[in-house]
């Protein structure tokens, strides 16, 4: 009796299952997990040894200094590690030839791989979260401010957006190294630099940058929430800084995800295996 091809959603979950299996056994997953653990361990040692007042003033200050700064880097690195070559690798390494010639839509492959990258990144993030929360319990007892839960949810939203962006670059280029390099340069250097320059000297709110939207992860842990616009005068020089508001930050991150995931999918659908 001929086999009945499962639904596209079920096929996407099949791709997720095996892609995730491939991830968790890979060196890159161990390295990324190692990075999360090393960052957590270093912070544990440094805070334990030097007892900085910025960290230990209150539970919320602790989360602000610890999670508010480190989590965004963990997200960016996870995005690069798990999303950087997720699609381009299918062309460059020819793994796509194993799966694309089957009765499966490319959108199912894209969605399945995206979900696997999300789960792998989520595992790394959860390990780092565990280290953070355990440290906070050590210094402040069983105290989990609601702002931290909000910050964690924003971090997940940022992860979703970053993976949307990295998958887009991965679909744009057939070379994995070009896709990864572009993502690294943009996420770790270019966006931050542009944001600083536009913020300070052009006096325009950088609402179009994903890294600006991610500001809500740290801002929500600052009590009271920072002013939206802060202008400082240094003699004749006026420096303006912007703090993204929560609705604005959510809108930026959601927009980044929606636009990049659609563009990435269109590119993958159109790209040819030749």
């Amino acid at each position: 009796m001929p086999n009945r091809v499962p639904s596209s959603i079920r096929q996407a979950f099949t791709v997720t299952k095996f892609e995730l299996l491939n991830y968790v056994r890979s060196r890159r997953f161990i390295i990324m997990l190692g990075i999360g653990i090393i960052v957590g361990a270093l912070l544990t040692l440094l805070v334990g040894h030097y007892r900085p007042s910025g960290f230990l003033a209150s539970s919320i200050d602790f989360y602000s200094s610890w999670w508010g700064i480190s989590a965004t880097y963990i997200v960016i690195l996870s995005g690069i590690f798990f999303g950087g070559d997720a699609i381009s690798g299918e062309f460059q390494n020819k793994t796509g030839y194993f799966i694309v010639g089957n009765p499966i839509r490319r959108s199912s492959i894209y969605a399945g791989k995206w979900l696997a990258a999300f789960v792998a990144s989520f595992i790394v993030l959860i390990v780092f979260l565990g280290i953070t929360v355990l440290n906070n319990f050590y210094y402040f007892g069983l105290n989990l401010p609601y702002q931290f839960l909000e910050s964690f949810l924003f971090t997940l939203l940022y992860l979703i957006s970053v993976l949307g962006l990295t998958f887009f670059f991965s679909s744009l280029f057939k070379s994995s190294s070009v896709a990864i390099l572009t993502t690294v340069v943009l996420m770790l250097f270019a966006f931050s630099l542009i944001q600083e320059l536009i913020d300070a000297f052009v006096h325009v709110e950088p609402w179009f940058l994903i890294t600006y939207g991610a500001g809500i992860i740290g801002n929500i842990l600052t009590v009271p929430y920072p002013s939206h616009i802060l202008t400082t005068h240094f003699g004749h020089v006026v420096v303006t800084s912007y703090a993204v508001t929560v609705p604005e930050g959510i809108a930026i991150l959601v927009a980044y995800f929606a636009v990049t995931v659609i563009l990435g999918l269109v590119l993958f659908e159109r790209k040819e295996f030749n």
């Binding site: 099949t14 791709v15 491939n22 056994r25 030839y97 194993f98 799966i99 089957n102 009765p103």
Partner: peptide
């Protein structure tokens, strides 16, 4: 088609299981 590569961390049984699941 050509010489496809299989995800290197998978075993043949897992790689074939993936194709079998996709094909129903």
């Amino acid at each position: 088609i050509e010489t496809p590569e299989i995800y290197p961390s998978l075993t043949p049984a897992e790689a074939l299981s993936m194709i079998a699941e996709i094909r129903g």
